[in-house]
Write a protein that binds this DNA or RNA. Sequence first.
DNA 1: CATTGACGTGTCAAGAGTGGAATGTAAAGT
DNA 2: ACTTTACATTCCACTCTTGACACGTCAATG
Lengths: 171, 171
Amino acid sequence: MSLRHAVLGLLSERPASGYDLMKLFETSLSHVWSATQSQVYGELGKLADAGLVEVAAEGPRGRKEYAITDPGRAELRHWLTETEPTRTRRSDSLLRVFFLGLLTPLEAQTYLLTEAERASRQRAGLEHAEASIEWDDDPLSVHGRLALEYGKRLSAMHEEWARWAAEQLKA
Amino acid sequence: MSLRHAVLGLLSERPASGYDLMKLFETSLSHVWSATQSQVYGELGKLADAGLVEVAAEGPRGRKEYAITDPGRAELRHWLTETEPTRTRRSDSLLRVFFLGLLTPLEAQTYLLTEAERASRQRAGLEHAEASIEWDDDPLSVHGRLALEYGKRLSAMHEEWARWAAEQLKA
DNA sequence: CATTGACGTGTCAAGAGTGGAATGTAAAGT
DNA sequence: ACTTTACATTCCACTCTTGACACGTCAATG
């Protein structure tokens, strides 16, 4: 359950409201972790009950600005240093590859080439994002850059693989 | 909810019991889709209710061998050709990268190098698996080979990226 | 013949995640 | 003054997933 740690991590940079966090999930974390608004608000409530965050200020429109507490920072650090990342081996698009035998060779190749196209577009999107982001010295963006590079390499690899796989099916 | 399609896909190759399916999930599909036994048996029940699979034979120890039906095959085909793969942008290990700023540079580099090691081991594991699998002309294994190649490329890329990222943090 | 291990099915509780709806306030543009 | 847009929270109903538990059978081994 890393949603909890995603929220704590974002709050470790600066205090934020649920609404602010949603925007961060949609922008900086969009390729890394997704969350719905129900989840974010729910998690903030649980986190507050557990004393890992607290309401630091209240603003207009019922805005509640949450800040991470010391126990929260400790939990975050513990997660980073003491726990193993859980790898969820689950990929819809790769699962389909297993069952491509049910299609005609032409259909299967089409599927793979569509995947390649998609990966290519994604790569272009990331490169565009990289160029347009203001890389200030926000500590989050330093490491965000590393994550973005990962995304670029991943989509490049995906595209190459899909083209290779389509080629394999010809033979 | 692709668990349903994973089960249908496996049954499209040949009839199987819940127990058989579990083994297939743990072996051939292990790097692509995971499922627990509760899920498999539960899904088989739902699939049978929906008429997408049927009990083709009963064996010793209460064994029920399920077979895919024509509506099931249609559903599988529909999934493969008409629906978009859902991309779950969620990666625990990448999420951590975002928050590496909370650690000392040394700790952060350690994290990345550990990731590199892990990816390297995974790659070795896949290569070992590739060598030891009997590549008969099972239609599943033809495409399984493509998926395996994807895994190899992914882990290679992951390792390279992690080493590169660790290097970046030195500067 | 007794035990062990592989085979085999099933249920339950709790938590995680999805998607949508309801409700309202503040600020900014026309 | 009016309307739109952005801000902001909360609740609900549902499905998916996990992990553990409970139950029972067949085959081989010593």
